[in-house]
Design a protein around this nucleic acid. Structure first.
Length: 472
RNA sequence: GGCGCGGUAGCCAAGUGGUAAGGCCGGGGACUGCAAAUCCUCUAUUCGCCGGUUCGAUUCCGGCCCGCGCCUCCA
């Protein structure tokens, strides 16, 4: 069964399939590396990851490219402010980003090209556009794309030309560059004093590439002039993706990306995330508050990618409980997750989960079905329906593995507590257990409270007790 | 103003032209000396408001109210 996904360009849910019959080649606009990415950014990357995982767990090969924007106003400004060379600055944040991605269990893209590493390709593309009369050099040495020369401009975002022009005319006076039409956008930016030593030589003089051209050049080099799918946050629809299309299609006369996948924004406690509200959470900040990346991932999966999702600390807590429920299931079925580059494709009893995912990446529906199955299967297990049925058991395990692989969740069975228990704590616990055995409840409760004060929780079993560090 | 999206239980959040998934919280129960953990179970006569179409609408259409996004470099 193929994946059906909403396409921003046609506004229809369409099948995703590889145009070359082999591998779905897709691109995701990556981070600008000037600081830690926030969970809103990660909503996009997590959904792109789920997209890939759903394809791969359905047996489809993929080729995933995600760029790293390592030259722009912000990276330059910040690196200069810190007195660090640009590449050193962006390298640091790029590595930080990789670390976060790993924590969130994001599959590593097959290729992660950086803008700076593709300056020559960008220059060639710009030259092509100039040759074809689609771009022109301004007096200051900047190069602009001539929007009026590209008839299809505005098709993705459905903005009428008039509106684009009107909205920009008002700002024209404050514009720092010289261009023919306010709607035109920069392909190459002439060197300015505030850029410091961050410039490259080009046929039009010293300068640096514009933002949109990097993605176009990278896509063309790594995925070809035409490829299967392009994606990013909704805010990139205009102008970024609109401009990418213009740059490439004006050059090749071919369809750039066949499918456009956009992820809606994350809100925090009902509000737009913004620096001024101080609600731009990073994984690190959440981690300091005791929330794991897996719990964050779960929250990001709990809403439809087409709808704004409201991130709240209540939902963080709910996600913790939900993950714990999945772990109980894993424990019951003695499930041991396998890790590796190949994802499980046999959903078995978890087929309904896969169907939900193939239906426009309905992660909320998939999670709902997953929990229903978890309940049903657990009930059957408790009734002894799996006794002596190794085949059926392994089908459940494989299906659960496929589910986890598709969602990118890591669910490990609860292990025996391996944490070292200090001798005095162990002694107290032992004393309490003995008091309990001799039915000295007062003493037993006293000792349990004492342990609790020391930060340890006692859980009695039938034959013995368990002691774990308290979570608070 | 233009384009687009949404308003579903205390919270988060699916969904369908035929009568409301799932998670959290809360209630009840099993278990337990009491707990914790776990398991079972209950909780929206109702899907922003008002009309219309229909045998029947939360789901389709129109209007209104409210919230949100984009409109040149923000995922």
């Amino acid at each position: 069964m193929p994946l059906k996904l909403y396409d921003t360009l046609t506004r229809e849910v369409r099948e995703v399939f590889p145009m070359d019959g082999k591998s779905v080649r897709f691109y995701g606009c990556g981070p600008t590396v000037y600081g830690p990415a926030h969970i809103g950014n990660f909503r996009t990357f997590v959904m792109q990851d789920v997209f890939r995982r759903v394809l791969e767990t359905s047996g489809q090969k993929t080729y995933h490219a995600r760029n790293v924007t390592d030259v722009d106003d912000k990276t330059i400004r910040q690196s200069l402010a810190e007195g660090v060379p640009l590449h050193e600055f962006t390298d640091r944040w790029s590595k930080y980003f990789d670390k976060d991605c790993e924590a969130l269990n994001l599959l590593t893209p097959h290729v992660q090209p950086s803008a700076v590493a593709h300056i020559p390709e960008q220059i060639v593309l710009i030259e092509n556009l100039i040759t074809k009369g689609k771009a022109y050099k301004a007096e200051d040495g900047s190069v602009y794309f001539n929007v009026s020369s590209f008839e299809d401009y505005g098709r993705l975002s459905r903005l009428a030309d008039r509106e684009i022009t009107t909205s920009v005319t008002e700002r024209e006076s404050s514009d720092e560059y010289e261009r023919d039409s306010a709607a035109d956008f920069a392909l190459w930016k002439a060197r300015r004093p505030e850029d410091g030593e961050n410039y490259w030589e080009s046929p039009w003089g010293q300068g640096r590439p514009g933002w949109h051209i990097e993605c176009s050049a990278i896509c063309m080099k790594h995925l070809g002039e035409s490829f299967d799918l392009h994606s990013g946050g909704v805010d990139l629809v205009f102008p970024h993706h609109e401009n990418e299309i213009a740059q490439v299609e004006a050059t090749t006369n071919k369809t750039f990306a066949r499918h456009w996948f956009h992820i809606a924004h994350l809100m925090v406690e009902g509000k737009k995330m913004s620096k001024s509200l101080g609600n731009l959470y990073t994984l690190e900040e959440l981690s300091e508050q005791g929330y794991s990346p897996q719990e964050v991932r779960y929250v990001l999966l709990s809403g439809s990618y087409r709808q704004p999702l409201n991130f709240t600390f209540d939902s963080m807590k709910a996600s913790r409980k939900a993950m714990s429920k999945l772990r109980d299931f894993a424990t019951r079925f003695n499930f041991i997750p396998t890790t590796g580059s190949t994802l499980e494709t046999e959903f078995g009893p978890f087929q309904p989960v896969q169907e939900a995912l193939l239906s426009d990446l309905s992660t909320p529906e998939a999670l709902g079905r997953c929990f229903s199955l978890v309940r049903e299967l657990s009930e059957a297990y408790e009734k002894g329906e799996y006794e002596g049925r190794q085949d059926a058991l392994s089908e459940v395990r494989r299906g659960f593995q496929a589910t986890c692989d598709a969602l990118g969740l890591i669910v490990e069975a609860k292990k025996e507590d391996v944490e070292e228990i200090p001798a005095d704590i162990a002694n107290l616990a032992e004393k309490r257990w003995n008091a309990k055995l001799s039915k000295d409840w007062a003493m037993a409760d006293l000792l349990r409270n004492e342990l609790l004060e020391l930060g340890w929780v006692v859980k009695d079993g039938k034959e013995t007790f368990e002691i774990t560090r308290s979570s608070e």
